[in-house]
Design a protein around this nucleic acid. Sequence first.
DNA 1: TTGGAAAGTCAACAAGGCTGACTTAAACTG
DNA 2: CAGTTTAAGTCAGCCTTGTTGACTTTCCAA
Lengths: 171, 171
Amino acid sequence: MADRNAANLMGRGESLLFLTDDQLRRGIEAMFFAYRGFTADPDRILQDFGYGRAHHRAIHFINRSPGTTVNNLLSILGVTKQSLNRVLRTLVEDGLVDSRVGTRDKRERHLFLTQKGADLERALSEAQRNRMRDAFRNAGPDAVAGFRAVLEQMMDPDMRRHYQEGGDGSR
Amino acid sequence: MADRNAANLMGRGESLLFLTDDQLRRGIEAMFFAYRGFTADPDRILQDFGYGRAHHRAIHFINRSPGTTVNNLLSILGVTKQSLNRVLRTLVEDGLVDSRVGTRDKRERHLFLTQKGADLERALSEAQRNRMRDAFRNAGPDAVAGFRAVLEQMMDPDMRRHYQEGGDGSR
DNA sequence: TTGGAAAGTCAACAAGGCTGACTTAAACTG
DNA sequence: CAGTTTAAGTCAGCCTTGTTGACTTTCCAA
């Protein structure tokens, strides 16, 4: 039964790779279940603030690229500006995000985390990093590279660009 | 700069693992961007039917375990029964899912895909498998094992149980 | 046999996606 | 300089998918 639908047997003399439909299904379910675990800790923290995942994503990428514009955030998050605006508005109103008119181009708004925003960011990312660190530790060093390689291949090209640009260049 | 916050240097004499906050942040973003790619193809197909991801998830797990009960599905999907019920109702109304009253326990409903439901399942999973197969191929055989190992570690224990039970035992 | 637990359903609400139409201000361009 | 494009924001309304609360039907065990 393991041989039906087997793909890529002896690709280029590499080790055998059984990519049966069943193996692929397992990969699909792994993504599904793992993503739930991945978001579980931040979700719990956000609930106490009355925020959701959308707020987390905005906070994360503003922290990653301080001074980023709304438009840039839009292309990273892949949502409509109406959707992002609703989230951003509450974050600014609540004093987590500072929106400053651009100096070079006054149409643009540059986004920064306030101290309060940075505090929440830290709590959220710390929880998420802890889980990822434990997963990496338990899976072992070799697994980490494979994890990242497969995920990178799974991205749409536009998102892969954003992902790579977010790196520190030390590759 | 790569050395601040470095964790797990020389864990047990294994190869060096630099788990800096920045490396972990990269892993977090990899999950975020990859999950979007992972769901993109099915999302497009579902749109033509007026369905969403919730329908996809139900269809997937009914296909995996034909005759499963609503309660079992509930514990896998981790949503409220009211939320699942709405999705299930439309699938039954549209003739994609067959809901049969249990013979032993008449409170239970056993769920099956109809031919029509199986057809949609196939279209969805085929698109998703194609993407995963390509990702696996491009990342290479070693990466696949690492990918799965890390994801499994990232799951909450309850979900890991569901994940492992869904395997074919050939490990 | 009756009371509680389990399975499922109905109603109403909220978050966060979406589209479409529109305004304002700034920047660019012929 | 006039006209167009671009960035940002707003308002209205819709949909999916999550939630809670109240309810019925069915089963089982004390």
